[in-house]
Design a binder for these strands. Sequence first.
DNA 1: GCAAAAGTGTTCTAGGTACACCCATGT
DNA 2: ACATGGGTGTACCTAGAACACTTTTGC
Lengths: 218, 218
Amino acid sequence: MSGPYVYEYPHPAATVDIAIFTVRDDSLRILLIRRANPPFQGVWALPGGFVGIDESLKHAAWRELREETGINAAYLEQFYTFGHPKRDPRERIITVAYFALLPSDKLDVEAGSDAQRADWFNVDELPELAFDHPKIISRALSRLDEKVVHSSAVFQLLPKTFTLPELQRVTELIRRESVDRRNFRKRMLSQGLIEATGELARRGAHRPAKLYRARVSA
Amino acid sequence: MSGPYVYEYPHPAATVDIAIFTVRDDSLRILLIRRANPPFQGVWALPGGFVGIDESLKHAAWRELREETGINAAYLEQFYTFGHPKRDPRERIITVAYFALLPSDKLDVEAGSDAQRADWFNVDELPELAFDHPKIISRALSRLDEKVVHSSAVFQLLPKTFTLPELQRVTELIRRESVDRRNFRKRMLSQGLIEATGELARRGAHRPAKLYRARVSA
DNA sequence: GCAAAAGTGTTCTAGGTACACCCATGT
DNA sequence: ACATGGGTGTACCTAGAACACTTTTGC
């Protein structure tokens, strides 16, 4: 399995890039890695890599996710493919972009341990980014917003059990607008997507919040 | 610009495929072409082709659209990328799928003239299809459904002016469910997306319908 | 005048929004 | 006791759903 590989016509390279989101320190965060090699050496970028010639796109995305976070259970969804001819200075590279949602309590040491190599950035305070990654992230964020409105994907960003204020906060971080607490509760509880565990979360000098879990969809 | 092209690592090929929709003879139709060469010679398939090495994905999609229909004005949107390693028996091919919406009155002779080569198929009566094109079409249809609910893309399937019953019919063909005429009218007119032209459409032995046009979004 | 499709209004229901006070805890 | 954040209910409004008769035309 080593080159050279010869084709009659020029072929682009294919990669996957992953926007891995989580909620941490009261902000929506995305995992970025510092590029070890040119081009854009030392610049922050989305985790990603080449698609194996016999590897499905989703498999490549899972593999990258595992390599960067140590996690192999997460919500993973393809959202767009970027293929501008000059988006990579080396050669023509088409990248299939995925986003992944990680529960805040599953953050692996691997990613957090070496902030020189990988770090979780607040989506509102992004550093300079390699390639067309600002565009990719911006599209990932708007897709995430749609997801939160029209599906139950938010739960993927929370631990198995969570409180309603936590759920509301995550929603607000993504939607970028705040909602009335009573209306939020009413809506959530009437939709039947969550159920109380019966436990309480004692988290400070105030009344404890009830814990809920996402109901497995029928 | 001729081979051979040599790479250190194996590269997939990249194509675009387009699901081109229109409404015709009271049905939602998709343009298919009969494959002239192996694999799947003689079998119906989505129009599509290889992405030029210096060509953007969207440009490739426009080019294919133009080549197959003669049209170069239409609603065109990328919706998913298919990359299963075995989806093409020849080599690894990753295809970026687009859908296009054509107004019923702009159908070009090119596509209609030679039914041996290209034809408009009712989406409910599709022939046997090459590759993973059934999967691509199925995904295109569900995306189209979402579009119709959440955006004003439907207008792209209609002539510049149209009647409310026509608009309703197109919506019903895509959504696959019928709605009450009065409620449909009320909703459309209250949204302010259409405006009356003042003209009437005399189309048979019955009361003529008012013509409307889509309002350019503010 | 008859068949065929277009046009039109009201009532009911459900979901969304606005809004303010009491409750359980830690210190 | 007090500061902090969690929990709760009502009134209003808007959008969607159900529903039947009249109008205009071509033949």
